[in-house]
Design a protein around this nucleic acid. Sequence first.
DNA 1: CCAACCTTGACACGATCGTGGTAAGGTTGT
DNA 2: ACAACCTTACCACGATCGTGTCAAGGTTGG
Lengths: 122, 122
Amino acid sequence: MDGLTINEAAETTGWSSRMLRYIEREGLIAPRRSPSGYRLYGAEELQRLRTLRELLDAHDLSLGDVGFASRLDRDEELHTAVESWLQARPSRPDDVPASDWLRFEQDKHERLLAKAGELTAT
Amino acid sequence: MDGLTINEAAETTGWSSRMLRYIEREGLIAPRRSPSGYRLYGAEELQRLRTLRELLDAHDLSLGDVGFASRLDRDEELHTAVESWLQARPSRPDDVPASDWLRFEQDKHERLLAKAGELTAT
DNA sequence: CCAACCTTGACACGATCGTGGTAAGGTTGT
DNA sequence: ACAACCTTACCACGATCGTGTCAAGGTTGG
């Protein structure tokens, strides 16, 4: 049975065994398993666990953050969806030729609808 | 004062005014301000608010997720740090030529150190 | 001037996160 | 065979998230 078992890996990486299981469930680091189901951490995993700690500390990230980044990496569809949303950056208001705002004097609700209508109908 | 005020924007987008402020604090959508500090939402912002809702629902994301993606987009240093961590993907254990494991028969701690040493010294 | 907005800040509260512990049961090495 | 490990599945608990509401004060428009 080569590779470190979970508690050994915990000892050398500084994570608790509890957290190693948690990290696995987050989809970040999933070591292979022995035939009987024991987690076996190899050099790659140990290295990644250590650099993960550094990554989190250095940039003040959460495991969820990195998990999400990983998801972004694997799910191309999600990646483009998020990216295209972000790309529609808040334009300078000057871009929107201040059209004839507030021409109407109707009740509040109708004014609202009218304003929204004009805005989105651009 | 053109543009929709926060409660008007809330009404047309489906978000609550509370959430619009929260979204702003998350760094996602920050409308310009009137001279006296009132938030003024324009067409772009309203559109982004609506598509944000769709984005979250469609992919089961949190505001924090999108906020983090935005941070990734703006902070190149952070982006490369995360990306390079992710790129070091969990290698198939076959990649690691199962070296001479478990040759020693010493006390638990020394064995651990030895194992970790060999692993990381690869 | 006054009602109806807006602002920031605070308290609240259920839901989820990050973490530890414990229980019930299988595996391993001597 | 037995101690010392491993597994999954829970309960717990403070911290943060998502959201509402309220307070104290400034702005706006008729």
